[in-house]
Simulated assay, not measured.
Amino acid sequence: MSTKQKILAILRQDNGIVSGEKLADTLGISRTAIWKAVRELEKMGYHIEHFPNGYRYLTSDVLEKELISNKALPTSSIFIKEETESTMNDAKVAAIKQQTAPALFIAEKQTGGHGRFGRPFFSPTGQIYMSLLLAPNQTFAELPQYTILAAVALSLAIDHHTGKQTQIKWVNDIYLDGKKICGILSEATSDFETGQIKHVILGCGINYSIDPESFPEELQAKAGSIFPQENPPVTRNQLIQLIWQYFFELVEGLPNKEYLDVYRKKSFVLGKTVQFSQQGVAYSGKATKITDTGELVVQTNQGVKTLSSGEISLEAIY
């Protein structure tokens, strides 16, 4: 543990004002070294109050693997960058390099993030951009369940920290107060010989706290954030930790498919009329069911259509 980390740990544990002298004596270094380390912590984004008699730690929102880790995701499997083109790409490169899975890749800023079908998305700093690398060794038919698992875990974690009820748009978007706050992207690679999935990567872009007026004008009516125009009551670390805690708990209960019950209850698509295009033909009909494999069943005038998330994007819901 570095000097900075040791000072941070002491300040956090104390919760009050800790003198520079006490820090220096505890760590066996000079007061000047303490002052320099505190300045470095502040440059990293930590909030530390200075008093004539010492320092006091204030709640800070700096991404830290130690505060995100859980039993399934130890600190050695969490990788945090200040800036990256895409956390999905980071996970793909790691998979090629035989990174042990599961592994989580997080970035403060993305320069080339994208959603389904390669669509770019608004990626301001200070939000949550992360991708989870998994090695499930299952068939491609089971891939949609991981997107659903992630959607349920995200939705439940946000509900927990906001006291509100999020909804899920089939198949991969989380909505709060009628606006999209999160998108999920899943990709997989296969073993050519066995036909099984070698790796699954789940990418999540979460609007954590954004002033509504900061969104591009064309997005302001449909995009939002978890904590708009307010100081978030929880840190990103706390939210990320709970998301993956829920996710791996759901994975353990995967055979029971209980997550599907939550997914269906949170759907704001079921029972509504949806519009979509399939093989160049436009359709409209009532969404009646989400299958156990994550497909959306729609009753149209042309008959029942079963939609796969990898092929179809809903164009309207009403």
Rank of each mutant, 00 (worst) to 15 (best):
Q299V: 12
E42I: 09
A151E: 00
A223L: 12
D211G: 04
K92I: 09
A223N: 00
G178A: 04
T291W: 01
R31A: 10
D177V: 08
V304D: 10
F79L: 06
E40T: 11
Y129S: 02
L185N: 00
F247Y: 15
Q245P: 02
A107T: 11
Q229E: 15
P216L: 13
A316G: 10
T100C: 14
W35S: 15
L58V: 01
V152S: 03
T306N: 08
E82G: 13
I243C: 04
K289N: 14
L73G: 00
E213H: 13
L133T: 02
G115A: 04
K65I: 07
G115Q: 01
F121D: 07
G183I: 01
I181T: 04
A107D: 03
G271S: 12
E230R: 07
K198H: 03
T75G: 00
L296I: 01
P144C: 13
I48H: 06
A72N: 15
S155E: 01
F140R: 07
I197P: 01
L143E: 06
F79H: 11
K22E: 02
G45L: 06
D90G: 02
L41M: 00
Q275R: 05
Q279M: 15
K266P: 11
G115E: 01
A95K: 07
T300P: 09
I68P: 00
Q275N: 15
E85F: 14
